[in-house]
Structures are given as C-alpha cells and as structure tokens.
Design a protein around this nucleic acid. Structure first.
Ligand SMILES: Cc1cn([C@H]2C[C@H](O)[C@@H](COP(=O)(O)OP(=O)(O)OP(=O)(O)O)O2)c(=O)[nH]c1=O
Ligand SMILES: [Mg+2]
Length: 848
DNA sequence: AGCTTTTATCCCTTCTCTATATTGC
DNA sequence: CTGCACGAACAAAGCAATATAGAGAAGGGATAAAAGCT
C-alpha cells in the first residue's frame, strides 16, 4: 500500500453548499430570533458529501487496495438528486460540532461578516442510509445581559465598539476569526426563568448579537436531536464497526515497543442480522478463514495504513468494540505515531482533520471519578460497549468474557495471552487461529450492541432529552436537564440565567419508616407511588418560573387560591396563573417512559424484557434527575426551594399514606384484622392486612391504592405493586421476600434488597451462601433448627470446597481478622462442611 | 537477703469515630 | 516557533442507610521492675 497518499478525498475544504430558500422573501414577516434559530436548525440546507467523495474514494481504493479486495457493497448507495428548494431532507443526527469557516450570506439573517465565521456542522444518516453532512450557516452565538438603568438605544453603538475593542485587545480567539467579533447589539425585553412568574422583574435586556470568539467555546448543542421527524422507533441504517486488535506483548503492551499484529473489523448494516463484511488484517501471512476476508502485510506500517484507509472507504457511522475508547484506538494512533505512519490518524469524516488523543475525566457523586481517553473521530459515533455497560448495568465483572456469557450465553474463543507471541511467530495456521480469536473479539461487542438495543435506546434518549448521542456516554445528567430546560424556555421566550454555584449544606431528603423487623409468614402488600417526585412537581406546579420569592405573593395581590405554600414554607403559583417549565419537561419524559413500559408489558423474551426494563429505568432516572438538578448545589441552576419542597411533600405523603391505610383497615371498620404498615421507604408502604392468602392481599392492596390515590391531586398516583409472601425484614433498606405480582398462585421470583446477596463488595462465597440460605428459608420454608442442616447441603458455594480446604490454613488468618459476621459464618460453615465431605467417600451431589 | 506489694509497662481486646463502598429510594 | 508554568473555566442529578475497615482511645490482665517489709 502506498503510504504517502493523502488520506481521504483531499484537503479539508468544506464542500460546496446549497442554500435553502426559507427567507428569500425579504418582505415576509420576520419570526422572532428564537423561532429563526429553530427554523434554521430544522430547514437547514444540507448536502450529500458522498457524491463528490465517491470518485475520490474509488480512486483511492484503486490505488491503495488490490482491485480484488474491493467489494462494491462496502460503499454506500449513491444518493438521488435532491432539490433543496422543494424537498426536505430528513435525517437522524449522529453528531454535531462546529468549525470556523468562510462566511456565507444567509437571507434574512444578520448581515454577513467578512472573513471567517462559526459554522455548525451536523452529521447524520437518512432512512435510506445516505450519509449527510449539514453545514449550518447564519447562526451567530449570542448572550443576553441586563441593561443598566438609563441604558438606551443611543448607547448601543458605543457598547459594541467598546466590546470589539476589548476583544481585539486580549487576543484570545486566535487568528481563525477575522473581522469584528460583535456583529450587533440589540435591545429587547425578556424574562429570566428564575424570576417569579408575574413579578414584572424582566426589565430591558441588552443583547449583543454574536461574539464568536468567546462564544465559540460557550455554546453547546442547541436543540440537539436535529428535529428529525422519523417515527419514534427508527432504523438507523448505518454501519457499525467493531475493530479489535491484538498486540505482541508482555504484560502491558507499550505502543512504543509492542507491534500491532492483527486488526479485525466487521461491517454491519443496521437492521440486518449478520455482518456483511468480516475483515482480518494481519501481519505476516495467514491461512484463509471461511466467511472472512483476510489480508496480510509484511510491514506493520502497511497494516496500520490499510486499516486507516479501510475506515475511510467504508465510512462507518458507528464504531463499537470493547474498551476501544481507552485502549484500542489510542494504541493504534500512538503506534502509528511511533512508526511514523503520517497518514494514519485521519479517522473522522472531515478530510484532513487529524484524530488526536485527549485525556478527560468524568466525576459525579454517583459514579465517582472515571478517567477516560477520547479519540476524536469527527462525524462518527463511538459506542464503546464497555463504557455502555459500565453506565447502564451493574455487573460483578465487566470482562468481555463474563459480559458475553451473561447476556449472550457465549464465551470467548480462549487464547491465553502468553501464547499470542508464539502463535504469531508460528506459521500461517497459528496466525489463522489468532485471527479467528480476534474476529470473535470484534463480533461479540457487535452482537451485544445489537442484542442490548444500545443504539435504539440511545437515540430515543438523545431525542427525548435533546443532546447529541456522544453526550450520553461522555456527559452526565445535568446537561440533559439543561438541554430540555432550554428547549422549553425557548418555546416560551424565556431566558436561562447564569448563576454562580457555591456549595452549601445538604437538605433533608426522604423518610424511611422504622421497620418492624422480623420474619413474616403472611402476605405483605406493597403500595408504591408511581414516579413520586416528578408527579409532585407536576401536581403542585413546582418550577423556577412559578416560585414566588418571600412576600411577593402578597405584593402582587394574589388570592389564596392562586398559589400554594409548600411544607417548607415556599410559595409557588398555580397552573391557572402560569404553567411551569419543569412540569412540562416531566410530562414529556414520563410519556416516553410510559411508552417504554407498554412495550415491556408486551414482551416475552427474557433478554429483551431486561433491555426494555433498562430503557424505562433510564427514562425514570432522567425524570428523577430533573428533581436532582434543582438540588444540585454544584450545578448550573440550583434551586433548593424546589427540591426541598419536593422532599417535604414526599415526607408528608408517605406519612399520610400510612395513616390512611392504618385508619381504614381496622377491626372497627369491619375487617378481620387491623392493617399495619410494617415498613416503607420514600414512596412505598409495606402493609400487613392480616389476611392469609396472596389473592386477598392483592385485592385489598389494589383497593387501598385506589382509595389512597383519591386523597392526592392528579397526577399523583399510588399503585399496588406486589405482594411479598413470606417476607423477611432485616432492617432499613435490607429485606427479602418471595414476590407475587402477575398471579396470586405462583411467585414470580425471590426478591432481595440490600442484602449481601445483591451487593458486589462481597466474595461469591458469602453471596452464594446468603442466597442459598434465603432460598431454603423463603422458598422451601425451612424455619427453625432444620434450616442449617438442610440449606448447607445445597450450597453452590460447596463447589469451591477442595480449594477452600487447601487454602484454609492461610485464609484462616485473614478471615479471622475480619469483623464481618457474614464472611465469618460463611467461612466457618464451609470449613466444617468441607472437612466432613472430605472424609466421606461419596460426597452429595452438589447443585449448580 | 528474701518475700510481698506496688507500680509501670506492654499487649491484647473492646469501643468509638471516621472514611469508604454500595445500595435503596 | 515551541515548550513550560500558571490561572481561569468547565463540569459534576439528589439524600438515607447499612456494613466494614482502619485508626485511635480506653480498659484490663500479665509481667517485670521498684519499693516496702520482716
Ligand atoms: C430510583 C430513584 C428514586 N429517586 C426518588 C425520586 C422518586 O420519585 C422516589 C421514589 O423512587 P421509586 O419508587 O424507585 O421511583 P418512582 O416512584 O420515581 O418510579 P416508579 O415507582 O413508578 O418506578 O425516589 C431519586 O431521586 N433517584 C433515583 O434514582
Ligand atoms: Mg415509586
């Protein structure tokens, strides 16, 4: 392969642009700036890069790759001609970024500045699989600032001049941007979203229009889902690709030292069951593999170069793999740098734009600190399955092997790391074995991506919350809430203020009802509010825009029925005065969750059920994060009045629910036994109605839930969720029970909350022992002295008996120093047992 | 001097407090 | 022009609860040295 060729279709000149004609008619009434911006996003002229690229690509294919290696199916279909004047171009946005490029006049927009301007660039695919790159001109970054008293139109010229002067003085934007930074200053009147709804605080606000140098770094992603009008469940017919590379190595492969010996890639069109391409690039000859294309190179430089070229030709929309983000891709780039393969690191969609490695880290209270590397690949979505799994699923092990087994029931092709070197140094058959292993490594993440419906779920989340796909893996919950807030605020012409965040004290959260600990051999019905915090915010119209500062209610002459006072003493106006933004956002999120739940109810396949459950859970977390956002004191817009009110209402509600249930279901009211709430956490109550059958408990639970719901304003709803029978209540947030919900005559499963059985910070021995004991206790109902002798014979933990015995000498020391009763009991039991089994000639059959 | 008693010291266990990990909502 | 040091800016859903390890204090028993008695 000719290593000297420039990558891709030539230097990074942005391709030609067509203009949409939306504002060609200058006489047409001008929409407000907000609507304009929105419309710009919606109706933007877009152009197909493919057509002009294809010739070049073919050229490069012919030069770089043996003609026999080119399969026309690798390339995308040729897009039909599109008349931007008449036809809309509808596509799913995959990524959006911005660059500084030559100005283009936008009809009806601000006057074109000379020189370079910031341009938004959206990448995506259409339903037919055509690749789209949309250059969005005419968007000038802007901000609002309150005008000082006495500021009038006559001062605007001065302000603009001064601003430009100040900006050119501290020359921070670099040389990319030329011409004046501030294009215009306008006066307008807007209301800040944090101010009380009808306070009339919104004075005149100055509006410098466009200050590219600073703002170029400030703006995020306006209305990120590209306003795409595809149906909710869409087919992105893109290509996913899973590279996996093997390295010759000792323990830690070092890109400065250890060569890359194979790179395997699979190509898949979304919606098709099997990859249309399996490609193994190897160093040194390799025997053919059925169903895969093998290409061998003598020089490592050529191998890397070939892969880089391949990526550009195949042009995938999505790239997946396992830990590619932190290992494979950075390794390949570093290795190429070491070998001085100059044309390698151009993996993105913009020709001539270098892919570089950047260190970044994400930290939040939930996840702790996570350090990652970022390899830039403009226009492609990187869906590293490891990152996806780390965020979405709680697993005991995240190795590809464990994960594949867990979700797919498949194991990896096992090749010991230590023999990779030997295999590579063997013959073409041993290298073939290595390639098969490598292909499997690429195949598994791809299968996971498809089976776990990662893309479908991610696209839904991106659309609902209005952020680019890549944010879902690289950013947290705040950005999603901010994006939705901005979207909603824009609809209503409100502005979001910039507030300085300072840390403060924690506020009071939810109540956990003191548990009546014990073993219950009667059915316990569980009632739970559906989406408690979101529904509180909706029911009481809690929002930044409905909050009344202390005393304002009186000042504005609001009557008592126009506002409410929350348990914390804060005041909010009712819907009749103004409907809050947050309730509307929540409506949207909850309706998305409702759709997901409806799909879940229809599904029967266990894995798909698990996936759909994950999807509805993710939407639930997003909705709860709206509440969390208002209480995030190190955040963009904290408002403790809202979050404290929410938890305050919540505390009142669980208490009231408990009272209601215990007051209605009493002997005096004609029930056989008085009901008792034995436990409850935040928004749930566990009730003992005193009935002995599950069916009766279910009936009473349903009735009680409906009756209690009537005591709260819509959309707050208490739901009957499940019955536990029997129920073992150990302490707050720690209990177990057999769960009945779908039918009264058979339990659905055993449910464990907070016990060692579900925690991941114990050794498997403890977890297995606890699980097995609970099984005996709850399912086999062995209570009393027999429990020990019965349960221990069926411990899965016994599988490790011989090992335990051998290691007991050393283990004893470390175990006995532990203070954990669980661990001690497990270990002692195991030890006793192993001794007795060791001695018996015919050990009992161990159950798996 | 030899024995007993007192006291200081060491070592061990037990308790308390804090930080961390993880889960439940 | 490049490399380095420094500061600013950016980003980060929430609280309640349990279990456990580790550090350190407190307390008790064993032991040996010191003191006291005959
Ligand atoms: C799960 C969860 C709950 N909460 C709070 C807000 C929830 O409304 C409240 C009750 O938790 P849940 O009952 O677990 O959740 P939910 O009521 O929102 O949804 P549903 O019952 O329909 O499944 O606890 C959070 O703040 N963050 C969370 O991650
Ligand atoms: Mg709930």
């Amino acid at each position: 392969m000719d290593g000297k060729r420039r990558p891709g279709p030539g230097p990074g000149v942005p391709p030609k642009r067509a203009r949409g004609g939306l504002w060609d008619d200058d006489d047409a009434p001008r929409p407000s700036q907000f609507e304009e911006d929105l419309a710009l996003m919606e109706e933007m002229e877009a152009e197909h890069r493919l057509q002009e690229q294809e010739e070049e690509e073919l050229q490069s294919v012919l030069e770089g790759v043996p003609p026999s290696a080119i399969d026309p199916r690798w390339l995308r279909p040729t897009p039909p001609a599109l008349d931007p004047q008449t036809e809309p171009l509808i596509f799913q946005q995959l990524e959006i970024d911005h660059y500084v490029g030559p100005a283009q006049p936008v009809p009806g927009g601000p006057p074109p500045s000379r020189g370079s301007v910031p341009v938004l660039r959206a990448f995506g695919v259409t339903d037919e699989g055509f690749s789209v790159c949309c250059h969005i001109h005419g968007f000038a970054p802007y901000f609002y600032t309150p005008a000082p008293p006495g500021f009038g139109p006559e001062h605007m010229g001065d302000l603009q001049r001064e601003l430009n002067l100040a900006i050119s003085r501290d020359n921070r934007g670099g040389k990319e941007l030329t011409g004046p930074a501030v294009l215009a200053v306008e006066l307008c009147s807007r209301e800040s979203e944090c101010s009380p709804g009808i306070s009339g605080l919104g004075g005149p606000l100055g509006r410098p229009l466009g200050e590219p140098r600073r703002a170029g770094r400030q703006w995020g992603q306006p209305w990120g889902d590209g306003r795409c009008s595809l149906p909710a469940v869409l087919g992105v017919r893109g290509r996913s690709q899973a590279p996996a590379s093997s390295c010759l190595t000792g323990i830690f492969p070092e890109p400065e030292r250890d060569p890359v010996i194979q790179i395997c890639s699979l190509g898949l069109r979304w919606g098709e069951p099997e990859p249309f391409l399996r490609l193994a690039l190897t160093l040194r000859p390799c025997a053919p593999i059925l169903g895969a294309k093998v290409q061998s190179y003598e020089k490592e430089e050529d191998l890397l170069q070939a892969w880089s070229t391949f990526i550009r030709i195949m042009d995938p929309d999505v790239i997946t793999g396992y830990n590619i983000q932190n290992f494979d891709l950075p390794y390949l780039i570093s290795r190429a740098q070491t070998l001085k393969v100059q044309t390698f690191p151009f993996l993105g969609r913009v020709a001539g734009l270098r892919s570089n490695i950047r260190d970044s880290s994400f930290q939040s209270k939930q996840t702790g600190r996570r350090d990652t590397k970022v390899v830039s690949m403009v226009g492609r979505v990187q869906m590293d399955m490891l990152q996806v799994l780390l965020r979405e699923y709680k697993l005991r092990s995240y190795t590809l092997n464990a994960v594949s087994f867990h979700f797919l029931g498949e194991q990896k092709e096992d090749v010991q790391h230590s023999i990779i070197t030997d295999l590579q140094n063997g013959n073409d058959q041993t290298r073939r074995r290595l390639a098969v292993y490598c292909l499997k490594d690429a195949y598994l993440p791809l299968r996971l991506l498809e089976r776990l419906m990662v893309l479908v779920n991610a696209v839904e989340m991106a659309r609902v919350t209005g952020v680019p796909l890549s944010y879902l893996l690289s950013r947290g919950q705040q950005v999603k809430v901010v994006s939705q807030l901005l979207r909603q605020a824009m609809h209503e012409g409100l502005l979001m203020p910039v507030v300085k965040s300072e840390g403060g004290e924690d506020y009071t959260g939810a109540t956990v009802i003191e548990p009546l600990k014990g073993y219950y051999d009667v059915p316990i019905a569980t009632l739970d509010f559906s989406s408690l915090y979101p529904s509180i915010m909706m029911a009481h119209n809690l929002c930044y825009t409905t909050l009344l500062r202390p005393g304002t209610a009186h000042k504005l002459g609001l009557t008592e029925d126009q506002f409410i006072r929350t348990p914390t003493g804060d005041e909010f106006v009712k819907t009749s005065v103004r409907k809050g933004l947050l309730p509307q956002i929540l409506e949207n999120l909850l309706s998305a969750r409702k759709r997901a739940k409806a799909e879940l109810a229809k599904e029967t396949d266990p894995l798909r059920r698990q996936v759909l459950d994950g999807r509805q859970l993710a939407l639930k977390v997003s909705a709860n994060s709206v509440y969390g956002f208002t209480g995030a004191q190190v955040g963009k817009l904290p408002c403790l009045e809202i979050s404290q009110s929410v938890t305050g209402f919540g505390r009142q509600m669980i208490e009231k629910t408990k009272q209601l249930v215990e007051s209605k279901y009493t002997v005096e009211n004609g029930y056989s036994t008085s009901a008792k709430v034995v436990y409850g956490d935040t928004d749930s109550v566990m009730c003992r109605f005193g009935v002995s059958s599950v069916a009766e408990a279910m009936a009473l639970g349903r009735e009680a839930a409906d009756w209690v719901s009537g005591h709260f304003p819509s959309p707050i709803r208490l739901e009957f969720e499940k019955v536990y029978f029997p129920y073992l209540l150990i302490s707050k947030k720690r209990y177990a029970g057999l769960l009945f919900s779908s039918r009264p005559d058979a339990h659905d499963r055993m449910d464990c909350k907070g016990l060692e059985a579900v925690r991941r910070d114990n050794c498997p021995l403890v977890a297995n022992l606890v699980t097995a004991s609970l099984r005996r206790l709850l399912i086999d109902r062995c209570v009393g002295s027999r429990i020990c002798s019965l349960c221990i014979w069926h411990l899965p933990a016994l599988n490790i008996l011989p090992v335990a015995l051998c290691l007991s000498a050393c283990l004893c020391v470390s175990v006995s120093s532990s203070r954990s009763p669980c661990l001690l009991v497990s270990f002692c039991l195991t030890l006793t047992l192993s001794a007795s089994i060791w001695g018996s000639r015919n050990p009992p059959r161990l159950c798996a």
